[in-house]
């Protein structure tokens, strides 16, 4: 195990995060505050409670998930895409470092960043609405699991992308819509039966539901199913990364 290399990559990536602190931290805080103002105040004034939970508090888990998913993906994707774009990847490829260690450094840093942002949003939310977390251990566990899974997914995107456009394609055109439609701001129970059934095909539903369960003790789908779906996606991403490094796809000629 080349631990100094893992740490070097991790520190390099974290330095990038702090260098762009304004964009990395301040932007999500402002965005979250805006969501609270718009959704919490405007809709919350009409929809008092969902499933017995005050609307303002109800949207907190979904909001954190929204940032967690987009931040994990974009951080990890950019982290590995940029060296490929700039050519500095040569150093990574010629270093005595195993693929697993490369992934550990990049995905570890991306997950750290998005967890940090998730916690910042949680703290921001606590300023707007009184929050009570029913299962703190599971809350943290889901935060970790989601951050790692989607950082891994972002890493795959960063390896696959051959331009800045593709880098943004998946987060903007797939992940954001799925998150908005994944019950971040409503319970899918509120939907007509057909759209409820369609929503169950959206993986983000399971993430948001499980996270909401950790907060309030109830979710749209059973927690066990949520965990199984998340691990399934994690396994898929791990498989993809392994295949990429084994074949050298987009990395080596």
């Amino acid at each position: 195990m080349n631990l100094p290399a893992v740490l070097a990559i991790y520190r390099f990536e974290m330095a990038r995060f702090w260098r762009t602190a304004l964009q990395s931290i301040v932007a999500p805080v402002i965005a979250t505050s805006l969501y609270f103002v718009v959704f919490g105040a405007a809709i919350g004034a009409r929809v008092q409670t969902v499933d017995g939970i005050p609307y303002g508090a109800f949207i907190v888990p979904g909001l954190i998930m929204l940032s967690l998913l987009t931040q994990s993906i974009s951080n990890a994707a950019f982290g590995i895409y940029f060296p490929r774009f700039a050519g500095t990847i040569y150093e990574l490829l010629s270093a005595p470092i195993a693929p697993f260690e490369v992934v550990l450094g990049y995905v570890g840093a991306a997950a750290t960043k998005s967890i940090f942002i998730g916690l910042v949003i949680l703290a921001t939310a606590a300023l707007f609405v009184p929050l009570h977390i029913e299962h703190p251990f599971w809350m943290v566990a889901f935060l970790l699991l989601t951050a790692v899974t989607f950082s891994l997914f972002g890493f795959v995107i960063g390896l696959w992308a051959d331009g800045f456009e593709k880098l943004q394609l998946v987060p903007l055109l797939i992940v954001t819509p799925l998150t908005f439609l994944g019950g971040s701001f409503y319970s899918i129970e509120m939907l007509p039966p057909f759209w409820h059934a369609v929503s169950l095909a959206n993986p983000v539903v399971y993430l948001v539901s499980a996270f909401r369960w950790a907060f309030f003790g109830k979710g749209d789908v059973a927690v066990g199913v949520s965990i199984a779906v998340t691990f399934g996606f994690l396994a898929l991403c791990l498989g993809l990364v392994t295949w990429i490094f084994r074949t050298g796809y987009r990395l080596k000629s």
Partner: peptide
């Protein structure tokens, strides 16, 4: 930093 990074990368 970049030179120190290279050293770390090589273990």
């Amino acid at each position: 930093d970049t030179v120190s990074f290279s050293r770390g990368l090589f273990g």
